[in-house]
Design a protein around this nucleic acid. Sequence first.
DNA 1: CGGGACGGTTGATCTCGATCAATGCGGGTC
DNA 2: GACCCGCATTGATCGAGATCAACCGTCCCG
Lengths: 245, 245
Amino acid sequence: MKLDPISSCAACPIRHRAVCAECDARELALLAEIKSYRTFPAGAPLAAAGESLDHFSSIVAGCATMSRTLEDGRRQTVGLLMPSDYIGRPGRATSPFDVEALSEVTVCRFERRAFEKLVRELPHIASRLLTMTLDELDAARDWAVVLGRMTAREKIAAFLVSLARRQAVIEERDGPVGAVALHLPLSREAMADHLGLTIETTSRQITALRKDGLIEVPGKREIVIPDFEALALETGDDGDGGVIA
Amino acid sequence: MKLDPISSCAACPIRHRAVCAECDARELALLAEIKSYRTFPAGAPLAAAGESLDHFSSIVAGCATMSRTLEDGRRQTVGLLMPSDYIGRPGRATSPFDVEALSEVTVCRFERRAFEKLVRELPHIASRLLTMTLDELDAARDWAVVLGRMTAREKIAAFLVSLARRQAVIEERDGPVGAVALHLPLSREAMADHLGLTIETTSRQITALRKDGLIEVPGKREIVIPDFEALALETGDDGDGGVIA
DNA sequence: CGGGACGGTTGATCTCGATCAATGCGGGTC
DNA sequence: GACCCGCATTGATCGAGATCAACCGTCCCG
């Protein structure tokens, strides 16, 4: 198995899987004209469902959740946003979900009208946005399998595996993956909301995986996966599809 | 509340929400050159996860599911494909999910390389594909709320409401919605796989909704919703977000 | 230093949906 | 007609995860 971290070009705030050869100078210059950076504290709302947004941003540092809360307080997190993910949708004025900073978050903002104009001028950006959106769509559908059919234990394992894949700064990508150290950007409550579980079940299953030697828990927000393959087996997935995010 | 059926242009197999003014003659002519129609019987596989696809298609008639099956047989349907939805992803060679015809399905096929070339020539198509993909993304995330946080009864109600919204050929779209008649394109098993339930629970909850007068069941594949608003209330959702698909 | 707020863990019990099992029902073939 | 087969429904029971509740460790603040 290979870990497949998303490569991104440090010079360009819009993520893409290709290398920097794709970022031509004109595009970078035009993007630079309309972008600005902004930092929010942990817990800050970055967007509210239905609220009109005059800008479109991508996360540069930090971590956020995208969620919906039902009338009676039940909450489901539908996406975990990490550096290079975008907030708001290109060409849309509103987000259908609440976005909230989990830690201090720095975003790169583009004024929406100016960005839309830029996309019209540089069609290359539209196709890159399409690729990014297709990736998000795959991830959202993969997650439906986790939510709909996996047990609590499998959900936790799938979550840790997907987080490891996204955070992975693992060098030997083609060899067998050794121990992986993870920082959890979420509280137990946020994990539970992402997995469709309660806090208690989340906590118990983490304890169970720890007692079974599949993970180590050096700190409340720290996880070590001694054997990545072994944990991946706990997801019940055959690995073909790849639960990515 | 308004029902918001997807409008589509009969002359153009690629769905879009805008009216036909957007379909210019050149585009239609170019599309016509590379498209062909094909029909599959009910139950036929339209794509297999991971399999390489040399074409990209959109559904013209019939209904299909997109699903993943875990090693031990548990299956989750991640999307219900109806006319105007596409199979395969633009610019991608493989689908991460299995696609299977629920009824006889007619698709409009585009040879993948030719289609990609066309998209490069007509950037307008790329932005339309982006819009379609963003809609699918919203729908997939909405569905995560259903899978992760709703009870069995709420899941059934949400499914029927979303199906009604998609099938709706309701005239008075701005007035209060009256009775809605639905044809179910899925078996109980397919519904269960879509909702993350078992067949038995699905059947029991349909019976319960019927006994409570929220739906009528004139046939196994027929549902009448006498009061659309009342059924929508059963979803636990406040309607703001709108569970669409 | 005491107190309390917060996040996390653990225990006891309950409940909803899964599971196992039987029955119904319509449509097909021989 | 007799039979069967696939799908749906209904009943009985079980169990995973929710719920209710207690407790623990850490940090902050007076």
